[in-house]
Computed example of a mutant assay.
Amino acid sequence: MNPSPRKVAFLGCGNMGSAILSGLLDALDEIKSGDARTWNFTACTKTERSAATLVEKLGQHATRVQVLHGQNEEALADVDVVILGVKPYLAKEILSKPGIGQALAGKLVISLMAGVSVDEVHDLLLPLATEAPNAATYVVKAIPTIAARYRQSMTLIERSSSPLPQHHEELATSIFNFVGSVKVLEPNLMDVGSVLVTACLATLTVPLDGLLDGSVIEGLPRRDAMELMSQGIAGLGALLKHGGHPAVLRESISSPRGVTIQTLLSVERENTRVTFTDALLHGTEYLQKMRSKAEARQPSEKDKA
């Protein structure tokens, strides 16, 4: 097996890319061996302004990262792994630039683009194959969360339908293990999985805001309420992670005539459970529609011929 690659390029480094990069750098800082210092990172943004913003976000780690803007081909030179974090609608424009095909040849490309399948990324790269016909580009799809910044991401990796070199599979997993946990899913489950991990960080903030507002109304300062709630969420996460079922947890802390059952009753009266079920179903449906539209825009096999 090839030695673990140490050179990683981020192509498009917005909120998600910078979160992953920051988490990786923090994790590597905790590794005492000098081997951790052999990792090299390059990040390329679209504009000079976004490059300056990234440097500011990286803080003390900025000296360990080469930050470029508008220099994609240069960013991809002499790296082993490319983390593709561009907006899906920009992917074709960026990947079709002259020289990109040669720069990606033989490398592992980790796509962070939700709603864009591995096959679609391969279709984008197919016209570039003439630049390096003897070196395949390997693509893996990963859906992390911005909690990667604090190494608490739940990253989904799509199981590849075509064989990947073992060291590429291990590398993709190890990168995201640095910033949290990893779950490998079949391609047909990636949409619902993507919406679920996103809902855990976005949709659930709506009821949490409501709890904070209620706490303030009752006289508890918002900062204190946030502290209490944050630890409560961490505790809930630990219980769920160790096998606790939500219904069992609710039952175990709902005493007869107690306060907890009163709060639960208020939530159930508003059909809140169905609202969140619908939210996940609608999000998954939207991703599927995005893919269907993208596939409709792809040329047929006859057109390609």
Rank of each mutant, 00 (worst) to 15 (best):
residue 3 P to K: 04
residue 3 P to F: 11
residue 4 S to D: 05
residue 5 P to F: 05
residue 9 A to V: 03
residue 10 F to D: 03
residue 11 L to R: 03
residue 14 G to D: 06
residue 17 G to W: 02
residue 18 S to P: 00
residue 20 I to A: 03
residue 21 L to E: 09
residue 23 G to F: 02
residue 26 D to R: 06
residue 29 D to H: 02
residue 30 E to H: 04
residue 31 I to C: 11
residue 32 K to E: 05
residue 32 K to F: 03
residue 33 S to A: 14
residue 34 G to V: 07
residue 38 T to D: 10
residue 41 F to H: 05
residue 41 F to G: 02
residue 41 F to I: 11
residue 42 T to D: 13
residue 45 T to Q: 09
residue 46 K to H: 12
residue 47 T to K: 03
residue 49 R to F: 13
residue 54 L to A: 13
residue 55 V to D: 06
residue 56 E to P: 03
residue 57 K to L: 02
residue 59 G to T: 06
residue 59 G to S: 09
residue 62 A to T: 13
residue 66 Q to M: 06
residue 68 L to G: 01
residue 68 L to S: 05
residue 70 G to I: 08
residue 72 N to Y: 09
residue 72 N to M: 08
residue 73 E to K: 11
residue 76 L to W: 00
residue 77 A to H: 05
residue 81 V to Q: 14
residue 81 V to F: 12
residue 82 V to R: 04
residue 83 I to S: 09
residue 89 Y to S: 15
residue 91 A to M: 15
residue 94 I to K: 10
residue 96 S to Y: 12
residue 98 P to K: 06
residue 99 G to F: 00
residue 100 I to Q: 05
residue 103 A to M: 00
residue 105 A to G: 13
residue 106 G to Y: 07
residue 110 I to T: 04
residue 113 M to E: 11
residue 117 S to R: 03
residue 117 S to G: 04
residue 119 D to M: 04
residue 120 E to N: 14
residue 123 D to W: 00
residue 124 L to S: 07
residue 124 L to Q: 11
residue 125 L to Y: 01
residue 125 L to K: 01
residue 125 L to V: 01
residue 126 L to E: 15
residue 128 L to F: 01
residue 129 A to R: 09
residue 131 E to A: 00
residue 142 A to T: 02
residue 144 P to N: 03
residue 144 P to T: 02
residue 144 P to Q: 04
residue 146 I to G: 09
residue 147 A to S: 10
residue 147 A to V: 09
residue 147 A to M: 11
residue 147 A to N: 13
residue 149 R to C: 03
residue 149 R to Q: 10
residue 153 S to E: 00
residue 156 L to V: 11
residue 160 S to W: 00
residue 164 L to F: 04
residue 171 L to P: 08
residue 172 A to Q: 12
residue 174 S to G: 05
residue 174 S to T: 12
residue 175 I to T: 07
residue 179 V to W: 03
residue 179 V to T: 09
residue 180 G to C: 12
residue 180 G to N: 12
residue 188 N to M: 04
residue 189 L to N: 15
residue 190 M to A: 13
residue 197 V to Q: 15
residue 199 A to G: 05
residue 204 L to R: 12
residue 205 T to N: 14
residue 205 T to V: 15
residue 206 V to D: 10
residue 206 V to L: 08
residue 207 P to E: 12
residue 212 L to H: 02
residue 212 L to V: 08
residue 217 I to R: 11
residue 219 G to N: 14
residue 219 G to W: 02
residue 223 R to W: 00
residue 224 D to C: 04
residue 226 M to L: 10
residue 227 E to P: 07
residue 228 L to S: 07
residue 231 Q to T: 02
residue 235 G to D: 07
residue 239 L to M: 14
residue 240 L to A: 12
residue 240 L to D: 05
residue 241 K to P: 12
residue 243 G to E: 14
residue 247 A to S: 07
residue 247 A to E: 14
residue 249 L to E: 14
residue 249 L to D: 15
residue 251 E to W: 14
residue 254 S to V: 03
residue 256 P to L: 01
residue 256 P to K: 01
residue 258 G to F: 01
residue 259 V to G: 08
residue 263 T to K: 05
residue 267 V to N: 02
residue 268 E to Y: 08
residue 270 E to L: 06
residue 272 T to H: 06
residue 276 F to P: 12
residue 277 T to V: 07
residue 278 D to V: 02
residue 281 L to H: 11
residue 283 G to M: 06
residue 283 G to C: 14
residue 283 G to A: 13
residue 285 E to R: 07
residue 286 Y to G: 13
residue 290 M to D: 11
residue 291 R to I: 11
residue 294 A to Q: 10
residue 298 Q to F: 04
residue 300 S to C: 08
residue 302 K to C: 15
residue 304 K to M: 09
